[in-house]
Amino acid sequence: MIKVEHLVKKFGLRTAVDDISFTVEKGTVLGFLGPNGAGKTTTIRMIAGYLPPTSGAVTVNGIDVGADPVGAQKQIGYMPENTPLYDEMTVQAFLRFMAEIRGFSGKERDRRAAAMLDVCMLGSVRHQPIETLSKGYRRRTCLAQTLIHDPPVLLLDEPTEGLDPNQKQVVRDMIVRMAPEKIIMMSTHVLEEVEAICSRVMIISEGRLKADSHPAELKKRSDGFNTLTIEVLAPAEPAVAAFGRIPDVAQVVRVAGTAEKQVLRLVPRDKQSLAVRAIETAAENRWLVTELRSEPGRLDDVFRQITTTADVVKKSA
Protein backbone atom coordinates (compact mmCIF):
# COMPACT_ATOMS: atom_id res chain seq x y z
CA MET A 1 0.00 0.00 0.00
CA ILE A 2 1.21 3.49 -0.80
CA LYS A 3 0.15 6.04 1.78
CA VAL A 4 0.74 9.71 1.10
CA GLU A 5 -0.07 12.15 3.87
CA HIS A 6 -0.21 15.92 3.49
CA LEU A 7 2.67 15.95 1.04
CA VAL A 8 4.10 19.39 0.31
CA LYS A 9 7.08 20.33 -1.84
CA LYS A 10 8.32 23.87 -2.24
CA PHE A 11 11.06 24.98 -4.59
CA GLY A 12 12.03 28.35 -3.22
CA LEU A 13 8.86 30.39 -3.25
CA ARG A 14 7.04 28.15 -5.69
CA THR A 15 4.86 25.43 -4.24
CA ALA A 16 5.04 22.50 -6.64
CA VAL A 17 2.99 20.05 -4.56
CA ASP A 18 0.46 21.50 -2.19
CA ASP A 19 -0.91 19.23 0.54
CA ILE A 20 -1.70 16.02 -1.32
CA SER A 21 -2.99 12.95 0.54
CA PHE A 22 -4.11 9.58 -0.81
CA THR A 23 -3.67 5.85 -0.40
CA VAL A 24 -3.35 3.20 -3.09
CA GLU A 25 -4.08 -0.49 -2.53
CA LYS A 26 -2.69 -3.60 -4.20
CA GLY A 27 -4.30 -4.43 -7.54
CA THR A 28 -4.81 -0.81 -8.46
CA VAL A 29 -3.58 0.79 -11.64
CA LEU A 30 -3.64 4.44 -10.76
CA GLY A 31 -3.57 6.95 -13.59
CA PHE A 32 -2.00 10.17 -12.46
CA LEU A 33 -3.10 13.05 -14.65
CA GLY A 34 -2.44 16.73 -14.78
CA PRO A 35 -1.18 19.43 -17.09
CA ASN A 36 2.56 19.96 -17.48
CA GLY A 37 4.00 21.51 -14.36
CA ALA A 38 1.11 20.38 -12.18
CA GLY A 39 3.44 18.48 -9.85
CA LYS A 40 3.06 14.91 -11.13
CA THR A 41 6.75 14.19 -11.51
CA THR A 42 7.59 15.92 -8.25
CA THR A 43 5.03 13.80 -6.40
CA ILE A 44 6.30 10.58 -7.95
CA ARG A 45 9.90 11.51 -7.17
CA MET A 46 8.99 12.03 -3.52
CA ILE A 47 7.31 8.63 -3.35
CA ALA A 48 10.38 7.08 -4.99
CA GLY A 49 12.61 8.61 -2.32
CA TYR A 50 14.54 10.76 -4.76
CA LEU A 51 13.28 14.15 -3.58
CA PRO A 52 12.69 14.92 0.08
CA PRO A 53 9.30 16.47 0.79
CA THR A 54 9.16 19.90 2.39
CA SER A 55 6.58 18.43 4.75
CA GLY A 56 4.30 15.44 4.91
CA ALA A 57 5.10 11.76 4.78
CA VAL A 58 5.05 8.82 2.39
CA THR A 59 4.97 5.19 3.44
CA VAL A 60 5.31 2.31 1.01
CA ASN A 61 4.10 -1.05 2.34
CA GLY A 62 4.52 0.32 5.84
CA ILE A 63 8.06 1.65 5.32
CA ASP A 64 8.56 5.36 5.82
CA VAL A 65 10.34 6.69 2.74
CA GLY A 66 11.83 9.63 4.62
CA ALA A 67 13.21 7.54 7.48
CA ASP A 68 14.32 4.50 5.48
CA PRO A 69 14.67 5.35 1.79
CA VAL A 70 16.85 2.31 1.13
CA GLY A 71 14.25 -0.04 2.60
CA ALA A 72 11.37 1.67 0.83
CA GLN A 73 13.17 1.61 -2.50
CA LYS A 74 13.46 -2.17 -2.30
CA GLN A 75 9.66 -2.21 -2.59
CA ILE A 76 9.62 0.09 -5.59
CA GLY A 77 10.41 -0.16 -9.27
CA TYR A 78 10.73 3.33 -10.64
CA MET A 79 10.78 4.54 -14.21
CA PRO A 80 11.84 8.19 -14.26
CA GLU A 81 10.56 10.69 -16.78
CA ASN A 82 12.40 10.63 -20.13
CA THR A 83 13.93 7.19 -19.45
CA PRO A 84 17.44 8.09 -18.35
CA LEU A 85 19.77 5.15 -19.10
CA TYR A 86 23.51 4.56 -19.31
CA ASP A 87 23.72 5.14 -23.03
CA GLU A 88 27.11 3.57 -23.64
CA MET A 89 26.17 0.23 -22.06
CA THR A 90 24.57 -2.64 -23.92
CA VAL A 91 21.05 -3.58 -22.90
CA GLN A 92 22.21 -6.81 -21.29
CA ALA A 93 25.10 -5.18 -19.43
CA PHE A 94 22.77 -2.47 -18.20
CA LEU A 95 20.22 -4.92 -16.87
CA ARG A 96 22.92 -6.97 -15.18
CA PHE A 97 24.25 -3.80 -13.58
CA MET A 98 20.80 -2.82 -12.35
CA ALA A 99 20.29 -6.33 -10.95
CA GLU A 100 23.61 -6.05 -9.17
CA ILE A 101 22.90 -2.72 -7.51
CA ARG A 102 19.54 -4.19 -6.54
CA GLY A 103 21.55 -6.73 -4.59
CA PHE A 104 21.71 -9.79 -6.86
CA SER A 105 24.99 -11.35 -7.86
CA GLY A 106 26.43 -14.15 -9.94
CA LYS A 107 23.98 -16.60 -11.51
CA GLU A 108 20.94 -14.98 -9.92
CA ARG A 109 21.91 -11.61 -11.43
CA ASP A 110 22.31 -13.12 -14.89
CA ARG A 111 19.11 -15.11 -14.55
CA ARG A 112 17.10 -12.00 -13.65
CA ALA A 113 18.61 -9.94 -16.47
CA ALA A 114 17.84 -12.75 -18.93
CA ALA A 115 14.28 -13.05 -17.62
CA MET A 116 13.75 -9.31 -18.14
CA LEU A 117 15.14 -9.48 -21.68
CA ASP A 118 12.48 -12.09 -22.26
CA VAL A 119 9.56 -10.38 -20.51
CA CYS A 120 10.23 -7.03 -22.15
CA MET A 121 11.02 -8.55 -25.55
CA LEU A 122 14.52 -7.15 -25.69
CA GLY A 123 16.31 -10.33 -26.73
CA SER A 124 17.06 -9.13 -30.25
CA VAL A 125 18.82 -5.97 -29.06
CA ARG A 126 20.55 -7.28 -25.98
CA HIS A 127 24.06 -6.72 -27.33
CA GLN A 128 23.26 -3.30 -28.73
CA PRO A 129 24.47 -0.15 -26.96
CA ILE A 130 21.49 1.66 -25.47
CA GLU A 131 22.24 4.87 -27.39
CA THR A 132 21.47 3.07 -30.66
CA LEU A 133 18.00 1.92 -29.57
CA SER A 134 14.71 3.28 -30.85
CA LYS A 135 12.40 5.00 -28.39
CA GLY A 136 10.24 1.94 -27.97
CA TYR A 137 13.17 -0.26 -27.05
CA ARG A 138 14.49 2.44 -24.72
CA ARG A 139 11.19 2.55 -22.85
CA ARG A 140 11.11 -1.20 -22.59
CA THR A 141 14.70 -1.29 -21.35
CA CYS A 142 13.76 1.21 -18.68
CA LEU A 143 10.64 -0.79 -17.84
CA ALA A 144 12.75 -3.96 -17.59
CA GLN A 145 14.94 -2.18 -15.06
CA THR A 146 11.91 -1.37 -12.88
CA LEU A 147 10.86 -5.02 -12.81
CA ILE A 148 14.19 -6.68 -12.23
CA HIS A 149 13.72 -7.15 -8.47
CA ASP A 150 10.02 -7.97 -8.87
CA PRO A 151 8.85 -5.08 -6.69
CA PRO A 152 5.31 -4.89 -5.32
CA VAL A 153 5.08 -1.21 -6.30
CA LEU A 154 5.68 0.32 -9.72
CA LEU A 155 6.01 4.05 -10.27
CA LEU A 156 5.98 4.85 -13.96
CA ASP A 157 6.43 8.44 -15.06
CA GLU A 158 4.92 8.72 -18.53
CA PRO A 159 5.69 5.16 -19.61
CA THR A 160 4.20 5.51 -23.10
CA GLU A 161 5.31 9.04 -23.93
CA GLY A 162 6.62 9.33 -27.48
CA LEU A 163 5.77 5.78 -28.54
CA ASP A 164 3.91 4.82 -31.69
CA PRO A 165 0.48 3.20 -31.25
CA ASN A 166 1.83 -0.35 -31.53
CA GLN A 167 4.56 0.24 -28.99
CA LYS A 168 2.07 1.90 -26.67
CA GLN A 169 -0.12 -1.17 -26.86
CA VAL A 170 2.79 -3.42 -25.94
CA VAL A 171 3.57 -1.38 -22.84
CA ARG A 172 -0.10 -1.21 -21.86
CA ASP A 173 -0.53 -4.94 -22.25
CA MET A 174 2.42 -5.49 -19.95
CA ILE A 175 0.95 -3.16 -17.35
CA VAL A 176 -2.44 -4.86 -17.50
CA ARG A 177 -0.84 -8.27 -17.15
CA MET A 178 1.04 -7.24 -13.99
CA ALA A 179 -1.79 -5.25 -12.46
CA PRO A 180 -3.44 -7.83 -10.14
CA GLU A 181 -0.22 -8.51 -8.23
CA LYS A 182 1.04 -4.97 -7.84
CA ILE A 183 0.37 -1.38 -7.10
CA ILE A 184 0.98 0.55 -10.28
CA MET A 185 1.00 4.31 -10.33
CA MET A 186 1.55 5.88 -13.73
CA SER A 187 1.48 9.43 -14.90
CA THR A 188 0.35 10.09 -18.43
CA HIS A 189 -1.06 12.65 -20.79
CA VAL A 190 -2.94 10.11 -22.84
CA LEU A 191 -6.53 10.03 -21.62
CA GLU A 192 -7.62 7.06 -23.71
CA GLU A 193 -4.87 5.12 -21.96
CA VAL A 194 -6.37 5.92 -18.58
CA GLU A 195 -9.74 4.68 -19.77
CA ALA A 196 -8.20 1.54 -21.20
CA ILE A 197 -6.06 0.36 -18.30
CA CYS A 198 -6.54 2.37 -15.13
CA SER A 199 -8.87 1.32 -12.35
CA ARG A 200 -8.50 4.66 -10.66
CA VAL A 201 -7.65 8.13 -11.81
CA MET A 202 -6.36 11.17 -10.00
CA ILE A 203 -6.12 14.61 -11.50
CA ILE A 204 -3.83 17.20 -10.04
CA SER A 205 -3.51 20.80 -11.03
CA GLU A 206 -1.25 23.47 -9.58
CA GLY A 207 0.00 20.99 -7.02
CA ARG A 208 -3.44 20.16 -5.64
CA LEU A 209 -5.50 17.02 -5.92
CA LYS A 210 -8.57 17.97 -7.96
CA ALA A 211 -10.23 14.65 -8.62
CA ASP A 212 -9.84 11.05 -7.44
CA SER A 213 -12.23 8.53 -8.89
CA HIS A 214 -12.88 5.66 -11.26
CA PRO A 215 -12.44 6.74 -14.90
CA ALA A 216 -16.06 5.86 -15.71
CA GLU A 217 -17.28 7.90 -12.75
CA LEU A 218 -15.13 10.79 -13.75
CA LYS A 219 -16.50 10.79 -17.26
CA LYS A 220 -19.95 11.44 -15.85
CA ARG A 221 -18.73 14.83 -14.77
CA SER A 222 -18.39 15.74 -18.43
CA ASP A 223 -20.75 18.56 -19.41
CA GLY A 224 -22.63 16.73 -22.12
CA PHE A 225 -22.82 13.38 -20.32
CA ASN A 226 -25.97 11.39 -21.26
CA THR A 227 -27.13 13.97 -23.74
CA LEU A 228 -29.26 11.92 -26.13
CA THR A 229 -29.21 12.37 -29.87
CA ILE A 230 -32.30 10.82 -31.44
CA GLU A 231 -33.21 10.50 -35.10
CA VAL A 232 -36.90 9.94 -35.48
CA LEU A 233 -39.43 9.80 -38.33
CA ALA A 234 -41.81 12.48 -37.09
CA PRO A 235 -42.98 16.00 -37.90
CA ALA A 236 -40.89 18.74 -36.33
CA GLU A 237 -43.14 20.59 -33.89
CA PRO A 238 -45.01 17.68 -32.34
CA ALA A 239 -41.74 15.84 -31.87
CA VAL A 240 -40.03 18.73 -30.09
CA ALA A 241 -43.08 19.20 -27.91
CA ALA A 242 -43.50 15.49 -27.07
CA PHE A 243 -39.88 14.90 -26.14
CA GLY A 244 -39.88 18.16 -24.21
CA ARG A 245 -42.62 16.74 -21.96
CA ILE A 246 -40.34 13.99 -20.64
CA PRO A 247 -39.77 15.06 -17.01
CA ASP A 248 -35.96 14.61 -17.00
CA VAL A 249 -35.43 16.58 -20.20
CA ALA A 250 -34.19 20.11 -19.63
CA GLN A 251 -34.01 21.15 -23.22
CA VAL A 252 -34.74 19.86 -26.73
CA VAL A 253 -32.61 21.15 -29.59
CA ARG A 254 -33.54 20.43 -33.18
CA VAL A 255 -30.17 19.77 -34.78
CA ALA A 256 -31.39 19.01 -38.30
CA GLY A 257 -34.44 17.66 -40.00
CA THR A 258 -36.86 17.60 -42.91
CA ALA A 259 -40.67 17.58 -42.89
CA GLU A 260 -40.88 13.91 -41.85
CA LYS A 261 -37.52 13.20 -40.17
CA GLN A 262 -35.98 15.01 -37.21
CA VAL A 263 -32.60 14.90 -35.51
CA LEU A 264 -33.10 16.09 -31.97
CA ARG A 265 -30.72 16.53 -29.07
CA LEU A 266 -32.24 15.95 -25.64
CA VAL A 267 -30.31 17.49 -22.76
CA PRO A 268 -30.99 15.82 -19.39
CA ARG A 269 -31.74 17.90 -16.33
CA ASP A 270 -29.25 16.13 -14.14
CA LYS A 271 -27.24 13.85 -16.44
CA GLN A 272 -29.87 11.10 -16.19
CA SER A 273 -30.15 8.46 -18.87
CA LEU A 274 -32.96 9.42 -21.27
CA ALA A 275 -32.96 6.54 -23.74
CA VAL A 276 -35.82 4.47 -22.27
CA ARG A 277 -38.19 7.39 -21.88
CA ALA A 278 -37.36 8.70 -25.34
CA ILE A 279 -38.13 5.34 -26.96
CA GLU A 280 -41.38 5.10 -25.01
CA THR A 281 -42.38 8.57 -26.14
CA ALA A 282 -41.65 7.68 -29.76
CA ALA A 283 -43.65 4.48 -29.42
CA GLU A 284 -46.66 6.26 -27.88
CA ASN A 285 -46.73 8.55 -30.90
CA ARG A 286 -46.04 5.71 -33.35
CA TRP A 287 -42.87 7.35 -34.57
CA LEU A 288 -40.05 5.21 -35.85
CA VAL A 289 -36.68 5.76 -34.17
CA THR A 290 -33.92 5.33 -36.77
CA GLU A 291 -30.96 6.22 -34.63
CA LEU A 292 -30.29 6.73 -30.96
CA ARG A 293 -27.01 7.78 -29.40
CA SER A 294 -26.24 8.65 -25.81
CA GLU A 295 -23.18 10.81 -25.09
CA PRO A 296 -20.77 8.63 -23.07
CA GLY A 297 -18.94 11.60 -21.59
CA ARG A 298 -15.40 12.49 -22.43
CA LEU A 299 -12.48 12.34 -20.08
CA ASP A 300 -10.66 15.13 -21.86
CA ASP A 301 -13.63 17.43 -21.29
CA VAL A 302 -13.50 16.65 -17.60
CA PHE A 303 -9.75 17.03 -17.59
CA ARG A 304 -10.01 20.44 -19.20
CA GLN A 305 -12.84 21.48 -16.89
CA ILE A 306 -10.86 20.54 -13.80
CA THR A 307 -7.43 21.76 -14.77
CA THR A 308 -8.15 24.94 -16.69
CA THR A 309 -6.55 27.53 -14.52
CA ALA A 310 -7.16 31.23 -14.21
CA ASP A 311 -4.24 32.26 -16.41
CA VAL A 312 -5.26 29.95 -19.24
CA VAL A 313 -8.77 31.42 -19.21
CA LYS A 314 -7.36 34.90 -19.35
CA LYS A 315 -5.13 34.03 -22.28
CA SER A 316 -7.85 32.44 -24.34
CA ALA A 317 -10.35 35.22 -23.60
Binding site: K74, Y78, P80, P84, L85, R102, G103, Q145
Partner: peptide
Protein backbone atom coordinates in the same frame (compact mmCIF):
# COMPACT_ATOMS: atom_id res chain seq x y z
CA UNK B 1 21.93 11.94 -18.58
CA UNK B 2 19.54 11.87 -15.64
CA UNK B 3 20.89 8.49 -14.57
CA UNK B 4 21.58 9.89 -11.11
CA UNK B 5 17.84 9.55 -10.55
CA UNK B 6 18.02 5.91 -11.55
CA UNK B 7 21.01 5.32 -9.30
CA UNK B 8 19.57 6.93 -6.20
CA UNK B 9 16.17 5.26 -6.41
CA UNK B 10 17.57 1.73 -6.31
CA UNK B 11 18.60 1.50 -2.65
Amino acid sequence: QGTIELLFTTS
